[in-house]
Design a binder for these strands. Structure first.
Length: 575
RNA sequence: CGAGGUGUAGCGCAGUUGAUAGCGCGCGUGGUUCGGGACCACGAGGUCGUGGGUUUGAGUCCCACCACUUCGACCA
């Protein structure tokens, strides 16, 4: 490929709306173009990267007996009604009517389609287990797309669905898939991806893992124990509490706390540690705005996912008005309105001598003793784990919290979809059973962006050779020089003859211009032919990551470069 | 959905008290250059987001709407 003919432009200035480097570099490097909110078109360099990522995924999916299939982008609402998700999923699922007025949806995930495809096939136990997968477009009408390809509305996903006749078989396959995923990320050049225990959310099922690439721009918080290796998504990490009780237990007393609405203000005023306070965090049920009040120790933050999971319905932060049965800023467990759902976090269990709201304007209570004053309280875990918190596995105070990009996930779905959609098989004893499912996803574009995010410098991406759009970036400096052109042309042909993917820059432009473009394309090997080098009978070879910079003889350049590339490629696949 | 911000050439932006719409990059032509985004000359390119209003006159002031964007909410 000649760079001169490559469609798409590279430019110097950082686009105004880019908040992350991968976004800026991929726009500046001519990889993609904005179309609409959360929707991009790709140019050839990105297409070549994603094609290679997809090839890696195909290889690994095929290796664990996956069969590639294709599900539709537009599906009849009926199969989503069968699973129940037509009603339960929010506006991310795009629903519209076809010309006949029949409701249809845009595929945002394909469990329904997978069950629909194989429910006739899988009627006997002896067809199991099997796995089907596809690599295809998904559309999710996200509320807030951001960070370039990291969070978009339309994207390509590798999604796989496995079917089993026993939980043990699912677990065994799940583990195989887990290992396949590790190989995929290692081959794609980011072996540092870690799997973390996660919350299953709308997918259903119990066990699930997310594959996280740790970087500060990540949207997820990950709880890590450096001592024992425990890792979990913040959403799913249990918060362990140390039991704290002080003696003697004081009597309840009302204190005047004028205009003090936050727990910080109250604690500063009363000169007590926030750990000796009980704060109220108020939500409302989405369906009818009924108030849900959570009492939690003052220094902790609420994990809303845990609340939603416990409650079994969705909530949103409350709007408290004068008509509400709550006194904003002064809510406490003693004498709280019975017109709300009241929850207590584990952090308050058995604790005494707390400061809390008095359910009366400008007043708080001191001396709250949970056992004595709120004897009916039931305690559950609703808090976020904090930096330095207690590891739920090894019990040490060493939890660290990192940010990560979720590049893939795997779920043990169980029978949620097969049961809802009436997929059954006859087992060896002649009984009807629902197959047990697992599903396994990787976002292709997000993966490309995530790799860029952790593999770039100030000048552009540094693509791992396994997924780089090309393997060699050949620069003919002073292409108006006959010798340069003749030699570079022949080297271009010779490298291609040896199976090397070459992007060839023979434009008659200045060196800086040429190098800047090469940096933006991030091709791992750069080969420079120039009058200066020709005089010395050499070509220059360097790697994009600057780990290698050398010269080799013009006579053997094609063979040597080809060997370097093929060796590096081979090494990247030995994982 | 809540709170901010921004809409002016392909991109990044300036545009003062209301009076001929500008700069840089990019693009085209010609020339000079040539190892880290060179330079000169000439040139093309604009319904100033949309609609309404005020005014002799609106990119600029007022109102409404739309789009985008940042932060939250939400999210396999």
């Amino acid at each position: 490929m000649k760079l001169e003919k490559l469609v798409g432009e590279r430019f110097k200035e950082k686009p105004a709306d880019c908040t992350v480097e991968s976004h800026a570099l991929m726009v500046r490097g001519g990889y993609m173009k904005y179309v609409a909110n959360g929707i991009f078109s790709s140019f050839m360099p990105l297409k070549r990267i994603t094609r290679k990522l997809e090839a890696i995924m195909r290889g690994e999916m095929d290796a664990i007996d996956g069969q590639e299939v294709s599900f539709p982008v537009v599906m009849p609402a009926s199969i989503w009604q069968e699973s129940g998700r037509y009603e339960t999923i929010g506006k991310e699922l795009v629903r519209f009517n076809d010309r006949n007025g029949s409701p249809v949806v845009l595929g945002m995930t394909h469990e329904e389609a997978a069950v629909q495809l194989v429910r006739e096939y899988g009627q006997s136990y002896n067809k199991y287990p099997f796995m089907i997968y596809q690599i295809q477009t998904k559309f999710r009408d996200e509320a807030r797309p951001k960070s370039g390809l990291i969070r978009v509305r339309e994207f390509t996903m590798k999604d796989a669905y496995s079917f089993h006749t026993s939980q043990a078989d699912l677990e065994q396959y799940y583990d195989k898939c887990h290992k396949a995923y590790e190989r995929i990320f290692a081959k794609a050049g980011i072996p540092e991806v870690v799997s973390v225990a996660s919350d299953s959310g709308m997918m259903g099922g119990k066990i699930s893992h997310e594959f996280m690439l740790l970087t500060d721009i990540g949207e997820d918080s990950i709880v890590i124990c450096p001592e024992c290796g425990y890792r979990a998504n913040m959403e799913a990490a249990p918060n362990i509490i140390e039991y704290v009780r002080t003696e003697p237990s004081q009597d309840l007393a009302k204190v005047h706390t004028p205009d003090m609405h936050t727990i910080e203000e109250v604690c500063n005023y009363l000169k007590v540690d926030q750990k000796q306070s009980c704060k109220a965090v108020v939500y409302q049920r989405n369906s009818d705005d009924k108030f849900v009040v959570l009492f939690i120790r003052g220094d902790l933050e609420v994990n809303e996912t845990k609340m939603t999971n416990y409650l079994g319905f969705d909530i949103h932060p409350a709007t408290i008005t004068d008509e509400s049965p709550l006194v904003a800023g002064f809510i406490g467990p003693v004498g709280i309105s019975s017109d709300c759902i009241v929850l207590y976090d584990n952090s308050l269990k058995g604790v005494n001598n707390l400061v809390c709201g008095a359910n009366e304007l400008d007043h708080h209570l001191t001396g709250l003793d949970m056992d004595r004053d709120v004897p009916t309280a039931q305690f559950h875990d609703f808090a976020k784990v904090q930096e330095g918190g207690i590891c739920p596995v090894c019990g040490k105070h060493c939890i660290t919290i990192s940010r990560g990009i979720e590049v893939g996930n795997i779920f043990q779905l169980g029978t949620k979809y097969t049961k809802a959609m009436g997929m059954t098989y006859t087992d060896a004893d002649g009984n009807e059973q629902n197959p047990i499912m697992g599903c396994y996803g990787i976002g292709v574009g997000r993966l490309a962006a995530a790799i860029c995010e952790v593999h770039h410098d100030d000048y552009g991406p540094i693509w791992p050779i396994s997924i780089a759009p090309w393997q060699v970036h050949l620069c003919a400096m002073r292409a108006d020089n006959e010798e340069v052109r003749a030699y570079a042309d022949s080297l271009y042909a010779e490298l291609q003859k040896r199976g090397i993917e070459v992007i060839y820059d023979d434009r008659n432009v200045s060196a800086g211009f040429m190098f800047s473009d090469a940096d933006l394309l991030g091709v791992p090997y750069r080969v420079i032919v120039s009058p200066r080098n020709i005089k010395q009978g050499v070509v220059e070879v360097s790697t994009r990551d600057k780990s290698l910079k050398t010269t080799i003889s013009m006579e053997t350049a094609a063979d040597e470069v080809a060997k370097m590339v093929l060796d590096a490629l081979q090494a990247s696949q030995n994982v």
